[in-house]
């Protein structure tokens, strides 16, 4: 692990891993969505709207996975002071927020025909909306620190503290009566028919690979930005 904390070695790895993840992710996602839209049978109660499942569920998991990545990277940064960990957390924020927003939007579109409402303030929906706001706060904070200078420890602490929302989202449908149904997939058991579950698994894998590719690409961009700034500063220092 310490080996990959070296930016040179990281860049060598990321330069071939990034396109690999992006291309395979795009491929798997297209296959899963095409499969889900064209050849999966309608659900007994929800009918055709069940196809939203193949975007809604991966988006929800990756929205939560994104913050988990931020929290873990923040922990590594706070304890071991690896600058790459802080960069990884920054890079995961925007795709995480995008997937959270996608989850909320598809959920709302799904809720209208299924439940009869676009939005309710139940435990699951509200805690997911809180996650989106946490992402906005984290993005604003980490960008302000990167631009105006300041300790990268501040966004890292925010990332760790915000992680308390993740188990709350996960348990919200179990702890409280909610309009959102309880989990369909739990340890070792699924209430989703294999006809839906298999394409869902492919979609989750595809979206996850895409997520990883986007994070790596963003990390490379952030590293390049830092290098450019350092070079400019050196030049300016040499001229004066």
């Amino acid at each position: 692990m310490h080996g990959f904390a070296n930016p040179k070695r990281f860049l060598a790895l990321a330069s071939w891993l990034t396109p690999l993840l992006l291309v395979s992710g795009l491929l798997l996602t297209s296959v899963a969505l095409f499969w889900g839209v064209t050849s999966v049978p309608p659900d007994q109660l929800m009918g055709e709207t069940v196809r939203i499942l193949f975007i809604h569920v991966p988006a929800a998991w990756l929205g939560m996975g994104g913050w988990t990545a931020i929290a873990l990277s923040s922990l590594v940064f706070l304890v071991w002071r690896h600058p790459l960990a802080s960069l990884a957390a920054r890079a995961a924020a925007v795709p995480g927020a995008a997937f959270t927003a996608m989850c909320l939007i598809t959920g709302s579109i799904w809720g209208r025909p299924t439940w009869g409402t676009w939005w309710v303030w139940d435990g699951r929906l509200t805690s997911m909306l809180v996650l989106l706001f946490l992402y906005f706060g984290y993005i604003a904070l980490s960008q302000a620190v990167a631009r105006d200078g300041g300790s990268s420890r501040i966004p890292a602490i925010f990332g760790l503290v915000g992680a308390i929302n993740i188990p709350i989202i996960n348990r919200s449908v179990v702890w409280w009566n909610s309009l959102h149904q309880p989990p369909s997939i739990t340890m070792g058991k699924s209430a989703i028919d294999p006809e839906f579950l298999v394409p869902l698994g492919v979609a989750v894998l595809g979206f996850s690979l895409l997520f990883g590719g986007v994070v790596l690409a963003r990390m490379r961009a952030l590293l390049a930005e830092i290098q450019t700034e350092a070079r400019l500063r050196r030049k300016a220092g040499g001229a004066s």
Binding site: D43, Q44, V50, W115, L179, Q181, P182, P183, A191, F196
Partner: peptide, 10 residues
């Protein structure tokens, strides 16, 4: 409001 359960059945 109709509540959906956790079962997805074709």
């Amino acid at each position: 409001l109709a509540k959906h359960d956790e079962n997805y059945v074709p």
